[in-house]
Amino acid sequence: MSAATKGVWAMVVAAVIWGASPLFYKQLSHVPPLEVLSHRTLWSAVIFTAVLAMQGQLGSLPRLLRGRALLLVGFAALMISANWFLFIFSVQAGHTVEASMGYYIFPLVAVLIGVLAFGERLSRGQALAVLLAALAVLVLTVGLRVAPWIALAIALTFGLYGLVKKRLGASPVPSVTAEVLVLVPLALIWLGLTGSGQVQEFGRSGGHFFDDPATALLLVFSGVLTAGPLMLFTYATARVRMATVGVVQYLNPTGQFLCATLVFAEPFTRWHAAAFGLIWAGLALYTFEALRQDRAARRASVSAGTSATVLN
């Protein structure tokens, strides 16, 4: 099996795990979302730190935890923790359909952030794709008389997270490790307050880790569920063209959408159908443009290589 094929399979497995993750977090509906988030942060920090230690890369952390890099890491940590919280909350509260919409919208939000932050130019196809996503949000807002705030917040936090990661310019695993390490003190404080009964979350008490062995095991496994797919994703991006990664990535929100509609039986009205239809059309157009640009770039690279060979 070639390295590229292994990369594609790694990406598929990561996307399928992410897509099926609502089934896991639904099992923790009796645990308040911030408590779940705190345990997810703690156990993923343990796993990421152990992986870095085994790879001999612990020395990469100090640079990320001081000066300007710490500010960027801190903001990235805030964005990814907000994203994780919104996803956990949406699954527990019966809004998984809206969460999946957020991850569908994210690529188009990322394109818009590229324009605003880096001055990137949109092709006509990309511009139309962004407009279709905006129209989808408008349709859902008018139809349901409320904006899809969870979807928008998920897409925006993930988009800003990607923006900061690009500015940071660090390797994926060390940077994520630094992010969760920054969040660990907050997680410990929150678990301490809720576990002692000093603070309640949405009127619910905390300290559920000691409820029963099954709950404790699920909370610990949330770290594995965070770290495992990310490492597969990192492996894939090093071996597969980004256009391919982008296409396979859509398995994630598709899996979430299927969990919401087929397993959780969440409401899916005609307004949802219209909005998702517009989003899927926009993503199809965006994917076509990405693949076309990727082919053009590869042809240009081959052409340049051939010309250099002839000149030499």
Rank of each mutant, 00 (worst) to 15 (best):
W190R: 05
V240G: 05
Y286W: 02
T5N: 05
E120F: 01
A151L: 06
I113K: 02
G228Y: 13
W84C: 10
A265Q: 12
T237I: 14
R66H: 09
A82S: 15
G143F: 04
K6I: 02
A4F: 05
V73C: 04
L193T: 09
L64K: 02
L219V: 10
G119T: 05
V180H: 02
L152R: 02
F118K: 06
V111F: 01
L140Q: 15
V176W: 08
A296R: 15
P172C: 06
L258Q: 08
D212M: 06
A134Y: 01
L140D: 10
N83E: 09
G206F: 09
A15N: 09
F233Q: 09
V245Y: 09
W43G: 00
A10S: 10
Q92E: 13
A134S: 03
Q198C: 05
G74D: 03
I154M: 05
G203Q: 07
V36M: 12
V240C: 07
L128S: 01
G206E: 07
S44H: 13
S171P: 05
V240H: 08
S123W: 05
T269K: 03
A20Y: 08
P267K: 06
G67A: 04
T215A: 06
V240S: 07
G143C: 02
F89T: 10
L86V: 13
R145T: 03
V16F: 02
F75N: 06
A53R: 12
L140M: 12
F75K: 04
S222M: 08
A53G: 10
L71N: 07
F106S: 14
W43F: 10
T49L: 14
A82T: 15
V16Y: 03
A153F: 05
L278Y: 00
L183G: 03
T269Y: 05
W9L: 13
F24L: 07
M54I: 14
F209S: 06
T96W: 13
L138P: 00
V184N: 05
L160E: 00
R270T: 11
A304V: 14
Y161E: 00
A45T: 11
A136H: 02
A304K: 15
L283D: 00
G19H: 08
S100M: 12
Q200K: 09
F221T: 14
L42Y: 06
L65R: 08
P253F: 10
G228H: 04
Q249K: 07
G125T: 01
V224T: 11
S301V: 10
A82Q: 11
T269Q: 04
L61H: 06
G67T: 07
F268N: 03
M242D: 07
K26S: 14
F268Q: 04
H95R: 15
I17D: 04
I150R: 09
P62H: 11
W190Y: 15
R239C: 06
